[in-house]
Design a protein around this nucleic acid. Structure first.
Lengths: 130, 130
DNA sequence: TGTGGGGCTTCCCATTATGGGAGGGTCAAG
DNA sequence: CTTGACCCTCCCATAATGGGAAGCCCCACA
């Protein structure tokens, strides 16, 4: 299976497939002409990566997850620990973003939003009312 | 005021102050010896930038906000529009992250997290139950 | 048999915001 | 005159992704 087919079958772009190979997540065989050749197992890895990326796991985490996945004797505790630590990171970031959104929404609520120039948003950014 | 003092006074690192200058957010005067010299207005700009960055405004937005800030005749509506569009982006990202966290938490809840190797988290990433 | 085109290869560059570090100049205090 | 604290510029790195160029491979079609 060529890289183009693998891309369509896995939902991972060709660019990214090559990149994942470059950083060692994947080692597809090569044909005589130098073209990459993807077997079923390679495709499974690509799908695994895509699902993990859909959950925003960083590639370094994915590298560890792949190692655990390949190791049939791993303790599920280790996977769980990795996942929960990622959950904590996701929630921390989500809450930080939501907090900023809420702050800014409050500021915008006090802004006339008309032709007049006075604007509490700019005032706040300026630090007028610290 | 030197860049070091400006950094301490504004809470923006020297590296970033130079960077903001490089991308044209700031034009500090220079002393005879080539050192940057920050006036009160420059400091105000740095503080403005920092506050905007604390709300995760991208630098391109900050460029526009600074222009609006400098323009005493701007319509507050424009500021408000920019702010609300940023709020939307923040909330979208926050919700996306939170959704991922929730999904992953559910998966982790079904994982024993002990010495046994079977793990619903890896099963899901693998796409065992699509 | 030649050519067109689609797919593949590698390599370089850009993105966003931030920082590390090298190599070297400036200046005041000791 | 040296030392040390600043400052300067320039290069590199991060994380993940994509754009694009230059060139090879191969098949189909005229």
């Amino acid at each position: 299976m060529s890289i183009g087919e693998a891309a369509r079958a896995s939902g991972v772009s060709e660019k990214m497939i090559r990149h994942y190979e470059a950083i060692g997540l994947l080692r597809p065989a090569r044909q005589e002409n130098g073209y990459r050749s993807y077997a079923a197992q390679d495709l499974a890895v690509l799908r695994f990566i895509r699902h993990a990326r859909d959950l925003a796991f960083p590639l370094e985490d994915i590298r560890r997850l792949l190692a655990l996945w390949r190791d049939r004797d791993r303790a599920s505790a280790e996977v769980r620990r990795l996942a929960l630590s990622h959950v904590a990171a996701l929630e921390a970031k989500a809450q930080a973003l939501q907090a900023m959104a809420t702050s800014l929404k409050h500021l915008a609520a006090h802004c006339h939003g008309d032709d007049r120039p006075d604007c509490p948003i700019l005032d706040e950014l300026e630090g007028k009312h610290p």
